[in-house]
Amino acid sequence: MTAAPAWDDAIREHDRRVYVSVLALGLPPDRAREVTQMTWTRLIEQYAKGKLADLELPGLAIRQARFYALNEHQRARTEMRVLAAVPEPPAGDPERDLASRQELERVLAALETCSPQARRVFRLVYATPGGTAQTAAQAVGLSLQRVRQILCETRAHIRKELAR
């Protein structure tokens, strides 16, 4: 078992990521927030009971949150648009791996066509531990507003490239 994590720090660092992963399944914000909270509660309990041998964050929290989100959908049997409602095939599935690799390549190819400044902001926000628009603005010497604008432009560009 890994050393006891500082849960406050872990939640502060990964909560947004877990929340967004639930939003990506189509849950509305209020339900997504509940699911995220349930996820953290569950993890803390399970860890205290010694049932979590490998506490890999945020991966474990995201998987748990997705499980809750799908359960939520089945329980309510609503017309909610669960875009990823079909349970993901098990890891190691060649078809899924291929699709995942292709998707990754397309994102990277789109990223390569962005400006150097956009790539730098992207790296500072998405590829730097604890990276936010604020830290990126400080690092590149731009205003927060401009960094947010660059992020939106970059996302729009990648979205457009992925939609082709």
């Binding site: 990506a24 648009r81 994102v107 992207f122």
Partner: peptide, 23 residues
């Protein structure tokens, strides 16, 4: 709500790509 789900999924894709990319 659809836009939110789309954007959230895109965010996940970007994070996965960033984790595997080397800058």
């Amino acid at each position: 709500a659809q836009i939110l789900a789309d954007e959230a999924r895109l965010d996940e894709q970007l994070r996965n790509a960033a984790a595997r990319a080397t800058f």
